[in-house]
Amino acid sequence: MSDKLTRHDIASLYKRAATEQPSSQLDEQILKRAADDVTANKVTPINKPKRFYQTWHGQLSTAASLVLVAVLYVQNTEQYHQPSELINKPQILNDQQSQVAPEAVFEVMETQASEHAEVKLKHTLKRSASQMAAPQLKLQSMDTDSEFLKLAAITKSVANDFKVIDQLMIEGKTKVAKAQLKMLLTEHPELKAHLTDEYKKLQQDSGD
């Protein structure tokens, strides 16, 4: 049987022959050097994880949360203020140049509010704001439909009251008209500052 060594034989022989190892002293020197280098350079140990606020994503997410809260607060604050101001203090414009009777405007408002309360009433009120001569309501821009409806309801009620007062004045029932006006101004004292001369005169009249 011939001993013809194959490539595989050579590889096996070499693996059998490869038994040398570095001395333990040499091993210790190298391992010590590796440990000393870490100690000397004071690298952050990997077994001490950073806290959330020390990481970049922790800081970024905290900042983003604060910004979001601030934006939401500002937005909601504006919303809360505007509608409440409008509800509690409706402003009345006194347009001296317009000759349109206030009751005509309010009739339009009443009709359209019953049909398509929200959208048409808003449109009409905005249009009427530039044409009113008599006490009228000016609406600030409204953010929510529900707040708009509330204001529309109050506007309608006040408009009706003035309508009644006007009717009484036409009929010559000045005393009754004055009483109605007094009641209206008691409910809505803010209207006093914006009364036309006609209503101011009614207030001063002794009536019959």
Binding site: A18, E20, Q21, P22, D27, I30, L31, A34, A35, V38, V43, T44, P45, I46, N47
Partner: peptide, 18 residues
Amino acid sequence: YGQGDVKAFTQLYLRHKN
């Protein structure tokens, strides 16, 4: 080991030293 784990180096060393 680059991050400071000396045990990792020890494993690496034992694996390749011979």
